Simulated assay, not measured.
Amino acid sequence: MRAVLFDRYGPPDVLYVGTLPKPVPGPGEVLVRVHAGSVNGGDLHGRAGEVRLVTDVKPRGWPKPLGLDFAGEVAGLGPGVTGPKEGDRVWGVLGRTFGSLAEYIAVRPGVIALMPSGLDHVQAAALPVGAVAITALRDKARLRPGERLLVRGGSGGVGHLAVQLGRAYGAHVTALAGARTLDFVRDLGAHEAYDYATTDPSELGRFDVILDTVGADQPAYHRLLAPGGRMVAIAFDLRRPVSSLAFIAASARHGRSRVRFFSGKPSHRLLTDLARHVEKGELRPAVDRVFPLDEAAAAHRALEAGGVRGKIVIRVA
């Protein structure tokens, strides 16, 4: 089968489409024929070798695969699987491992769920990371109606979904994004949108909840929390990883305005909750550009260039 691979860490040009054996679903596994997947920040860091201590929990040799999320259909069932059926349209997220940018993947049923009705596979592939936003806002921050929410990276893959979810949860939503994407973020439902490059954090006021998808300059934004405020970080500063993680750890142990850091691992339950938001009209996919599998390197370059509105999707099938 065809898959996006790389033989060394480096820039987008290290990516190529090669072949891997088609997986055979083992006991308790589901074989999914992948129709589309998206490009996430984690893919960029994984390709560059910046998160190898996290992603190489089970070190594997070269070549390495890429891709975290996917939309497709069930193509086979391993022994003992109950629930999914062949032909089901499903979406999912692999979690801490890469490999979804391939024609087939074998996964546990717990990381997939039925796609929401009314979406094609390309649209659906833009949404699974929204489950991370649900965890961040609903479960970690416990965002309540009427609270003030700040989303850093409001036009990005997680951020643009967090803006929509914040509105669905009844919050007053402020978003930081690039100058070229401010109208896009407002159209998603942000009450206020500011250019992160020209806006000093001190100009923004106080917030009950801050969702940080960027990671840089966290202390400056932490100071914007109102008493009892909660800051949820799904990224840390890769330029200064030690000091960034030390700040997060210290804040989590001391003081009322804590920083909660987590690495998203969406589950069947969260993906099902995500589908409900879509079907209720509270979330809509935003696909910036679609690339064929053979142009995975170009897709990575496009995300690295910035100014992306929503998600960049790679069509696999």
Score class of each variant (00 low, 15 high):
Gly18Ile: 04
Glu103Met: 03
His222Lys: 09
Lys85Arg: 15
Leu293Thr: 01
Arg152Tyr: 10
Tyr16Ser: 07
His254Gly: 04
Val81Arg: 03
Val54Ile: 14
Ala175Arg: 01
Val111Gln: 06
Asp217Ser: 11
Val51Lys: 09
Ser117Tyr: 13
Glu192Thr: 03
Val232Asp: 04
Thr181Asp: 14
Ala216Thr: 15
Leu5Gly: 09
Leu165Ala: 00
Gly178Pro: 03
Val122Ile: 13
Lys140Glu: 13
His300Ser: 04
Arg148Gln: 09
Val242Thr: 14
Gly26Cys: 10
His35Thr: 00
Leu182Gly: 01
Tyr9Cys: 08
Pro12Thr: 11
Gly264Cys: 03
Val24Phe: 06
Pro63Ser: 11
Ser244His: 03
Arg96Trp: 15
Ala249Val: 07
Val313Tyr: 11
Val173Ser: 04
Gly255Glu: 01
Phe6Val: 01
Leu53Pro: 05
Asp7Asn: 15
Gly78Met: 09
Val93His: 08
His222Cys: 06
Arg33Asn: 08
Pro128Ile: 02
Val163Tyr: 00
Gly228Ile: 06
Arg260Ala: 15
His160Val: 06
Arg206Gly: 12
Gly26Glu: 14
Val111Glu: 03
Ala297Tyr: 07
Lys265Cys: 07
His121Pro: 04
Leu127Pro: 10
Leu127Ala: 07
Pro227Tyr: 03
Leu225Ile: 00
Leu20Gly: 10
His254Ile: 13
Glu203Gly: 06
Arg240Glu: 15
Asp294Arg: 14
Ile312Trp: 05
Ala226Glu: 11
Pro227Lys: 02
Ala249Cys: 00
Leu283Trp: 02
Val242Glu: 15
Gly153Glu: 05
Ser38Gln: 02
His35Lys: 14
Ala246Ile: 00
Glu295Asp: 15
Arg284Trp: 12
Leu161Ile: 10
Glu73Met: 01
Arg52Pro: 00
Pro11Leu: 10
Phe261Val: 04
Asp273Phe: 04
Thr199Val: 00
Arg180Asp: 13
Gly92Glu: 09
Met231Glu: 14
Phe247Leu: 00
Leu224Pro: 02
Asp139Glu: 15
Pro11Met: 09
Arg108Thr: 14
Arg269Leu: 11
Asp294Phe: 01
Pro201Ile: 01
His277Glu: 13
Asp187Ala: 15
Leu114Phe: 01
Ala216Met: 13
Thr55Gly: 13
Phe247Gln: 02
Thr97Cys: 12
Ser243Met: 07
Tyr104Gly: 06
Asp13Asn: 11
Asp195Ser: 07
Gln123Cys: 08
Val151Gly: 01
Gly87His: 02
Pro84Thr: 00
Asp195Trp: 05
Leu143Met: 12
Arg33Ile: 00
Gln218Lys: 10
Arg47Gln: 11
Asn40Pro: 01
Gly228Glu: 07
Ser155Gln: 09
Gly281Ile: 04
Lys58Phe: 15
His222Trp: 14
Tyr196His: 12
Asp120Thr: 02
Lys64Trp: 08
Gly87Tyr: 02
Gly130Thr: 00
Leu5Gln: 14
Ala302Ile: 00
Val185Tyr: 05
Pro11Asp: 11
Thr135Lys: 15
Ala133Cys: 00
Ala113Asn: 12
Val93Ala: 10
Lys22Asn: 10
Leu101Gln: 15
Tyr194Phe: 15
Phe70Asp: 09
Ser243Pro: 01
Thr55Ile: 11
Leu182Asn: 02
Gly281Asp: 08
Ala298Ser: 13
Arg256Tyr: 12
Arg52Gln: 13
Phe98Leu: 13
Ala220Lys: 14
Val17Gln: 09
Leu211Asn: 08
Ala133Ser: 12
Val90Leu: 05
Val14Ala: 01
Val39Ser: 04
Leu114Asp: 09
Ala302Pro: 05
Gly83His: 04
